[in-house]
C-alpha cells in the first residue's frame, strides 16, 4: 500500500494543488457571494435562484466549473487530513490512513461526476 501511494504521489499532489487553488479562489468567491453579497443586497436576491443555477449546470463550461468545485476540494481535504494524521499520530499508520482518505476522495469524485452528468 505504501509503495502504491509513493507511485501515485505525483497525481495526488497535483489534485491537492488544484484543490488548494479552487479552495482559495473559487470557494472564497462563492462564500463572498452566498455569505455576504446576497444577504447584504450587493447582488440581486435571485442570483442563486434555481433557474439560474440550473442554467449554470446545463452547459459544458458550467458543469466543468461545478465538477471542479466538488471534486478538487475533496483531494485537498484528504491530503490535509493525511498530513494532520502524520503530525498528530506519527507516520506509522500513514499508508493505511492515506489510502482510506484518498479512497473517500475517489468515491466522492465519482459521485460528483455522476451528479454533474445527471444535472
Amino acid at each position: 500500500m505504501k509503495q502504491l501511494l509513493i507511485v501515485l504521489e505525483p497525481v495526488i499532489w497535483f489534485m491537492f494543488g488544484q484543490g488548494i487553488m479552487i479552495g482559495t479562489i473559487l470557494l472564497t468567491g462563492w462564500l463572498i457571494v452566498v455569505g455576504v453579497g446576497v444577504p447584504m443586497g450587493i447582488f440581486p436576491a435571485d442570483a442563486l435562484a434555481y433557474e439560474r443555477m440550473h442554467m449554470l449546470g446545463s452547459n459544458v463550461i458550467g458543469r466543468v466549473v461545478l465538477l471542479g468545485l466538488i471534486v478538487l476540494p475533496l483531494w485537498k481535504g484528504a491530503h490535509h487530513l493525511r498530513s494532520l494524521a502524520v503530525d498528530f499520530g506519527g507516520g506509522d499508520r500513514d499508508a493505511i490512513v492515506g489510502s482510506l482518505l484518498y479512497l473517500i476522495a475517489i468515491v466522492g469524485s465519482l459521485l460528483g461526476i455522476v451528479a454533474v452528468i445527471r444535472l
Binding site: 509513493i6 504521489e9 505525483p10 495526488i12 499532489w13 498530513s83
Partner: peptide, 11 residues
Amino acid sequence: FRGEGSVYSCS
C-alpha cells in the same frame, strides 16, 4: 525525487 522520502512529502 518521486521515490522513497519523495519531494511530495514536503508540506
